[in-house]
């Protein structure tokens, strides 16, 4: 047999390094049917997968819609909507790739800030995209148009007075008889706008109006997803299912299903200082993971690391028949 070329890794004149080079194999070759092995593996895996699928099925929790959110928790919806209008929501202050309203929002490690370098690619103007533009799609809205015009033509300090007052009051709002009941105050046109938006959301019309693509077909759910994620309703659902980042949620799945267990290391870094509290945690964790991935790929080149297998002597167990043969 001269098939496998058990090449000695040594370059000419280089000293033999047991963690890099191998001796030439001059021993026996025994029959080994690779194709048969693959076919048996295929049968075994198929049976195992069928068994697991029959026994455990797979999870499919219903998605949250703007309609289901605003129906379940209209006050949370209204609270979120007002922060989108006055620009205090998480998305409004996110930074790239959605907007550049808050220059301090960009994550960085020293001068390294790729988020800023790439810039805004999926622009979201929360006041217009989440509140004003959707309201303008409603039919028969003479009174509503007057409110929208009053709001858009007011000075920014006037707008801020209205929205700040409303934001405080809506925390104590209730929902009854098909409408938001907000304690009375000086909200100007903001109250009718948010009321109308809440009704629109509960009708389901807002889901369609938020789709980024204004054509018939669309597949981009960036705008509605980010709007929903700004509310506490989705966050509470995730929290209840142990899916929050602070709960090692990245590797978890709804219910009792195993999740992406292979993300254990990625989610681990979010649980430890300084990433646990850092506003640059995402970039820091990604930097760590990229570095670790590079190290894993380059283990064969890294002195010390590449010696661990030899030092651990686990190979003595794996190849114990071989060592018995040559002893």
């Amino acid at each position: 047999m001269t098939t496998a070329d058990e090449t000695n890794g040594r370059r000419h004149g280089r000293r033999f390094n047991p963690d890099r080079d191998v001796a030439v194999w001059n021993g026996k070759y025994l029959p080994y049917d690779l194709v048969k092995e693959f076919l048996i593996a295929l049968v075994v895996v198929t049976l195992l997968v069928v068994l697991l699928a029959v026994v455990f099925s797979s999870p499919d929790d219903h998605p949250v819609t703007v309609r289901s959110w605003s129906t379940a928790q209209p006050v949370d919806f209204a609270q979120t909507a007002i922060t989108e209008l006055d620009g205090s929501s998480a998305v409004a202050n996110y930074g790239p790739p959605y907007n550049a309203t808050n220059p301090g929002a960009t994550q960085s490690i020293g001068p390294f800030s790729p988020e800023r370098w790439f810039g805004v690619h999926h622009p979201i103007d929360t006041a217009n995209d989440y509140v004003i533009a959707p309201l303008q799609t409603l039919p028969d809205r003479a009174a509503l148009d007057a409110s929208i015009n009053a709001y858009t033509s007011a000075s920014s300090s006037q707008q801020a007075n209205w929205t700040t007052a409303y934001e405080k009051a809506v925390a104590n709002a209730t929902f009854a008889q098909g409408g938001l009941k907000v304690p009375s105050g000086a909200y100007g046109p903001v109250a009718p706008m948010i009321s109308a938006l809440t009704s629109m959301a509960r009708s389901g019309a807002l889901d369609g109006a938020l789709l980024s693509s204004r054509q018939f077909y669309g597949t981009d759910y960036t705008k509605p997803l980010l709007f929903i994620a700004d509310g506490t309703y989705l966050a509470n659902l995730g929290q209840a299912q142990h899916l929050q980042g602070s709960q090692w949620g990245m590797m978890n799945e709804t219910g009792n299903y195993p999740g992406q267990a292979w993300l254990w290391l990625y989610t681990l870094w979010y649980q430890v200082a300084p990433m646990k509290t850092s506003s640059n945690a995402d970039l820091q964790v990604w930097a760590i993971m990229m570095l670790l991935t590079l190290i894993l790929a380059l283990v064969p080149f890294i002195p010390g690391l590449r010696s661990i297998p030899r030092w651990s002597r686990i190979y003595r167990l794996i190849w114990r028949q071989h060592y018995r043969d040559i002893s």
Partner: peptide, 19 residues
């Protein structure tokens, strides 16, 4: 489904931070 919504809105922060 809910999983996709949750995972996408969570994972966006990591991906976005890298540019």
């Amino acid at each position: 489904n809910f999983d996709s919504q949750w995972i996408s809105t969570q994972a966006k922060d990591g991906i976005n931070s890298t540019g």
